[in-house]
Write a protein that binds this DNA or RNA. Structure first.
Lengths: 225, 225
DNA sequence: TCAGCTTTTTTACATGAATTTACATGTATA
DNA sequence: TATACATGTAAATTCATGTAAAAAAGCTGA
C-alpha cells in the first residue's frame, strides 16, 4: 500500500482522485497549496508525489525545484492539456512523469504504478560485506573498516563510500553520487559531493587520491584490485 | 553511451530520431517491423527499446508481450496521439513509459534518460588489463604502466591512451577520440586532442612519435606490438 | 524551549587541468 | 615552387577540483 502525497489547489478534484486512489489501495494525503506541499513532502517519507503545475502563489515547478534540493521522491506532474513545453521543462527538472489535465484516474493509477515499479525495484542485492582493496563495508551495520581498523565516518561519507564500492572500477558520476548517497538531485554549483569526498579522503589517509580517483568532468572512481 | 533499439515501421521517422539520438551520444540500431524487433531485442543486450505501437503484422503490444517473456529491458512505447487506452494498456503490460506520436525528439531524449537513470546499474568493467607494446592499462584503477614504471597521467591523458589502446593498430579519428576520451564533440579549430596527445607523448619519452603515430587528416594510432 | 554539539552545505580561494590561442614547422596539392 | 592546410607545442586563458572555513541545518539532553 504505497503512500502518496497529492498537491493540487482544486479541492474537489483532489477528493475525487484521492477516493479513486484509495479504492486502488493507495494511502493518500492531500494539501492544496505549494508551500504546504513542500513542508509535507519533506516531513514524511512518501513513495510518490502527485503535483499540479497550475497553482496560485507557488506553482508546481517551483515546488519541484525546491523539493529536489532535499528529496528524490518520484514526482508525477499534472500539466495543462497538451502543453509540450511544460512537460519537457518538468522532465528536465527531474519530474518522473507527467499527465495532462483533466486526467483519467485509471491512467493516473497505471502511471503511478509504473513509476513505483521503476523506483521501488531497488536492487534487493543485500550483500553482507563488500571488500575492495583494503576496505571492508558492512551495510548491515553501516560500518567501514580500512586496513583492519574501524573507519569512523559520518552518514554521508559512509553512503558515498558504499556507492563507490558498489561500482568499483567504474566511474560514478556526481549526479548518481548525489542521488544515491545524499538522496537529492545535484544542483548547479553544488559542491557537497566534492566536499564529502575530500573529507572521506582525509580519513583514508595518504594514498586516498589513488584509491578514490577523480575523473574530471565526470565523477569519481574507487580503484578496483 | 547507451545502446538503443528503435522498432518502428516508419523508416523516415526512424532515421530522423536515430540521428537526433546519436547526436546525444546514444548508439542506435533500427528495425522496421515487429518480428525483426523481437529477434534483435533478444539477440543483443540493449539498454532500452523504443517501440512503436502501430505496426503492420505484429503490433507493438504483441512485441512487448512476447518480449517480456524473455527480457526485462526497459521499453518506451510510441503511441498514437492522445489514445488513452493504448497508453494504459501499454503501461499495464509492463512498458516503462510511452510518448504520443508525433513526438518531440528532445522530449524523447529526456524520457529515455529518465528511464535509463532508473534502470541502469553500472555494469561491471569487462577488461582487466590491456597490454600493448610496453604499455599496460588498468581500467579498474585508471593506471597506466610504461616500461614497468607507473606513468602519471591526467584524467584526459589516461582516457586518450585507453581509447587508443582499445583500438591498437587502427587509426582512431579525432571525432571519436574527442567523444570517447573527452566526452565532448570535436568542434572546428578544436586542438585539445592534439594538445593532450602532445603531453602524452612527452610523458612517453623519446620514441613516442613511433608509438603513437599521427595519421594526417585522420587521427592517431597506437602501434600494435 | 534552549544551548551546545555534530553533520551538511555553502562560500571562497588556491591549485592544477583542460582548452584556446598563437605561431613555427611540416606536408600535400596545384 | 608557391599555396593552403594540418600538426606540434609553448603560452595564455578558462574552468574544475581540493579544501579550509563560515554558515546553516540537525540532534541531543537538560
Amino acid at each position: 500500500m504505497p503512500n502518496i502525497l497529492l498537491i493540487d489547489d482544486d479541492v474537489e478534484l483532489c477528493e475525487m482522485l484521492a477516493e479513486y486512489l484509495e479504492s486502488e489501495s493507495f494511502t493518500v494525503n492531500m494539501v492544496h497549496d505549494g508551500h504546504s506541499g513542500m513542508n509535507q513532502a519533506k516531513a514524511e517519507n512518501y513513495d510518490a508525489i502527485i503535483l499540479d503545475v497550475m497553482m496560485p502563489e507557488m506553482d508546481g515547478f517551483s515546488v519541484l525545484k525546491e523539493l529536489r534540493k532535499y528529496i528524490a521522491t518520484p514526482v508525477l506532474m499534472l500539466t495543462a492539456k497538451g502543453d509540450d513545453v511544460d512537460r519537457i521543462v518538468g522532465l528536465e527538472m527531474g519530474a518522473d512523469d507527467y499527465l495532462p489535465k483533466p486526467c483519467n484516474p485509471r491512467e493516473l493509477v497505471a502511471r503511478l504504478k509504473a513509476i513505483l515499479r521503476r523506483t521501488q525495484t531497488a536492487p534487493p542485492k543485500t550483500v553482507d560485506v563488500i571488500k575492495v582493496n583494503d576496505i571492508e563495508i558492512h551495510p548491515a551495520s553501516r560500518k567501514a573498516i580500512y586496513q583492519s581498523e574501524n573507519l569512523p565516518l559520518t552518514s554521508s561519507e559512509y553512503n558515498l563510500l558504499e556507492v563507490l564500492a558498489m561500482n568499483v572500477g567504474t566511474v560514478v558520476d556526481k549526479e548518481t553520487l548525489s542521488e544515491q548517497a545524499l538522496g537529492k538531485k545535484l544542483t548547479e554549483y553544488d559542491r557537497s559531493i566534492d566536499m564529502h569526498l575530500s573529507k572521506l579522503r582525509q580519513k583514508l589517509g595518504d594514498d586516498s587520491q589513488e584509491l578514490i580517483q577523480t575523473v574530471r568532468g565526470k565523477g569519481y572512481q574507487l580503484s578496483g584490485g
